[in-house]
């Protein structure tokens, strides 16, 4: 019984982790940007989605859509106002660009956190479940919404796979992650590819944000934790590897769930962090990393 509970509860939370991390890793793989404002963007989706769904009274589905759009706007703002100016700056030495992008997005994430806490509150909010009620899954009482969330996550990940592997624009993305210079020589416009990857990233982070708000609830106090969890999952899976991130999301999700059920809910994040340290020691490139 306990095993079944862990299996079911762990599946949904891992799917959500996976969705949150996939955009993060794709962004790194294609454009070399580690976006430390990631948690902030997810929380913007959650808060705006909540306000639209409840405050404007347009319901959970439309509200969630507004939340995803807000995350997309926030992703564009991150790119155009923070990342691109740093990448283009002549004052910053080439080899230091990455560290400046890291610092810039970290500070931007803090600004988002404080700004959103000021606009709303630092209290977590929840979007009303997209579908209500509970169902019995092999004897485990499970909210129907949890099942839907797992399905939506995998649906979004599936769409991403199709986009990357079956469309011309997607293949260009893939190529950019392997050899951006080659792509430029072939006449592709890197700026457009970057814009595309930021668009995909914004949508994925937004969907993850609104789903989190409808599943567990989210608030500005979670910003750091969300960034950290995406970061650990991505490092564990191998920076830039989408399938590695998905596997890592499930490893972390289940490790946390097992810890919470079998040991103590308070110790939930610890074993995953220990695993992360071990991976960094033993296999620094991560599970499926290329380097």
């Amino acid at each position: 019984m306990l095993a079944l509970q862990i299996l079911i509860d762990g599946f949904a939370i891992s799917a959500l982790y996976g969705l949150g991390a996939v955009g993060f890793t794709l962004l790194f793989g294609v454009s070399g940007v580690l976006n430390l404002a990631h948690g902030g963007i997810m929380v913007i989706a959650a808060l705006i989605g909540w306000r639209a769904a409840g405050g404007l009274g347009i319901g959970s589905w439309l509200g969630s859509l507004v939340g995803v759009l807000a995350a997309l706007v926030a992703a564009y703002a991150t790119y155009f106002a923070v990342v691109r100016p740093i990448q283009r700056s002549r004052a910053i030495p080439r080899e230091e660009t990455e560290i400046f992008v890291l610092t810039g997005t970290l500070l931007w994430g803090i600004m988002i956190q404080v700004g959103m806490a000021w606009l709303f509150t630092d209290n977590p909010v929840t979007i009303r479940p997209l579908i209500g009620g509970v169902m019995e899954l092999a004897g485990v009482r499970t909210p129907a919404n949890e099942v839907l969330i797992a399905a939506v996550c995998w649906g979004a990940i599936g769409l991403l796979w199709l986009l990357v592997n079956r469309t011309r624009a997607g293949r260009a993305l893939l190529a950019a992650s392997i050899n951006p210079r080659g792509l430029v020589l072939l006449g592709f416009d890197l700026d457009r590819i970057y814009l595309l990857v930021w668009t995909i990233y914004g949508v994925l982070a937004g969907v993850a944000g609104v789903l989190l708000a409808s599943f567990l609830g989210a608030g500005t106090n979670n910003v750091g934790q969300l960034t950290a969890s995406a970061f650990s999952i991505v490092v564990l899976g191998g920076l830039g590897s989408v399938s590695g991130s998905l596997i890592a999301a499930y490893v972390v999700g289940y490790l946390e769930t097992v810890t919470a059920y079998v040991i103590a809910p308070t110790l939930r994040p610890i074993p995953a962090l220990i695993l992360l340290v071990l991976v960094v020691y033993v296999r620094p490139q991560g599970l499926l990393g290329r380097r």
Binding site: T126, L216, P265
Partner: peptide, 29 residues
């Protein structure tokens, strides 16, 4: 804590008649 599922399951396993809370920093979740 953001996911209270394991805590509620743990409580349910004891089948008490009521949960007596002491919460202030958390509430919504």
């Amino acid at each position: 804590t953001t996911d209270f599922t394991p805590i509620f399951r743990q409580i349910e396993a004891k089948s008490p008649d009521v949960i007596i809370t002491g919460i202030s920093h958390v509430g919504v979740q």
